[in-house]
Simulated assay, not measured.
Amino acid sequence: HRMSVVEPVFGNIGTNKGLKRFSLRGKTKVQGQWQLFCMVHNLEKVSRYGNVG
């Protein structure tokens, strides 16, 4: 049986950021929208935890 745990990044972007569906059409536009959501996710992580390392 497969585990039903969703990857935290996808869960955060889907639930907390509200990305249920892409609002644009076309592969390049969807890729741009996905990269924007990922960039926001990463900036939030940097602002929360800072440069640890």
Score class of each variant (00 low, 15 high):
residue 13 I to G: 05
residue 41 H to D: 06
residue 52 V to K: 08
residue 24 L to N: 11
residue 34 W to F: 05
residue 50 G to K: 02
residue 14 G to E: 05
residue 46 V to S: 07
residue 34 W to E: 00
residue 26 G to W: 01
residue 39 M to W: 07
residue 29 K to E: 13
residue 1 H to M: 15
residue 51 N to A: 03
residue 17 K to V: 02
residue 4 S to G: 13
residue 46 V to L: 15
residue 6 V to K: 08
residue 46 V to T: 13
residue 8 P to A: 03
residue 40 V to Y: 02
residue 31 Q to S: 08
residue 13 I to R: 07
residue 52 V to L: 11
residue 17 K to G: 03
residue 3 M to F: 10
residue 18 G to L: 01
residue 47 S to H: 07
residue 21 R to W: 13
residue 28 T to S: 15
residue 44 E to W: 01
residue 38 C to W: 09
residue 51 N to P: 05
residue 37 F to L: 08
residue 29 K to G: 06
residue 4 S to H: 11
residue 43 L to R: 08
residue 25 R to S: 12
residue 33 Q to C: 03
residue 51 N to R: 09
residue 52 V to H: 07
residue 26 G to D: 01
residue 25 R to M: 07
residue 37 F to A: 06
residue 1 H to W: 06
residue 39 M to D: 12
residue 16 N to M: 08
residue 24 L to Y: 13
residue 19 L to W: 02
residue 18 G to E: 00
residue 19 L to I: 06
residue 29 K to M: 13
residue 4 S to A: 14
residue 13 I to F: 01
residue 21 R to G: 02
residue 6 V to E: 09
residue 27 K to S: 15
residue 48 R to K: 14
residue 51 N to G: 03
residue 12 N to T: 11
residue 41 H to K: 06
residue 15 T to F: 03
residue 17 K to H: 14
residue 53 G to R: 09
residue 35 Q to F: 05
residue 27 K to M: 11
residue 33 Q to E: 15
residue 28 T to V: 15
residue 19 L to K: 04
residue 4 S to K: 13
residue 21 R to E: 06
residue 1 H to N: 10
residue 42 N to P: 00
residue 28 T to F: 12
residue 12 N to H: 09
residue 15 T to G: 04
residue 1 H to Q: 13
residue 44 E to Y: 05
residue 7 E to C: 04
residue 31 Q to L: 14
residue 53 G to D: 11
residue 40 V to W: 09
residue 30 V to R: 15
residue 24 L to D: 07
residue 29 K to Y: 09
residue 16 N to A: 10
residue 5 V to L: 10
residue 28 T to R: 15
residue 27 K to A: 14
residue 41 H to I: 01
residue 12 N to L: 07
residue 53 G to N: 08
residue 42 N to R: 05
residue 43 L to I: 12
residue 23 S to Y: 13
residue 34 W to I: 10
residue 45 K to S: 06
residue 31 Q to N: 14
residue 35 Q to S: 14
residue 19 L to Q: 09
residue 52 V to G: 09
residue 10 F to E: 03
residue 9 V to M: 12
residue 46 V to E: 08
residue 20 K to Y: 02
residue 1 H to P: 12
residue 1 H to I: 13
residue 32 G to P: 01
residue 53 G to S: 10
residue 46 V to W: 10
residue 45 K to Q: 13
residue 19 L to P: 00
residue 15 T to L: 03
residue 46 V to A: 15
residue 31 Q to E: 14
residue 20 K to Q: 11
residue 32 G to Q: 14
residue 13 I to D: 00
residue 1 H to A: 14
residue 31 Q to T: 15
residue 44 E to K: 08
residue 16 N to Q: 10
residue 12 N to M: 05
residue 22 F to C: 00
residue 2 R to V: 03
residue 20 K to M: 09
residue 30 V to F: 00
residue 36 L to V: 05
residue 18 G to Q: 02
residue 11 G to L: 06
residue 16 N to D: 11
residue 9 V to D: 00
residue 16 N to C: 11
residue 35 Q to Y: 06
residue 36 L to C: 10
residue 49 Y to C: 08
residue 6 V to A: 14
residue 32 G to N: 11
residue 49 Y to S: 14
residue 9 V to P: 00
residue 27 K to H: 12
residue 27 K to Y: 12
residue 4 S to V: 02
residue 40 V to A: 10
residue 30 V to S: 03
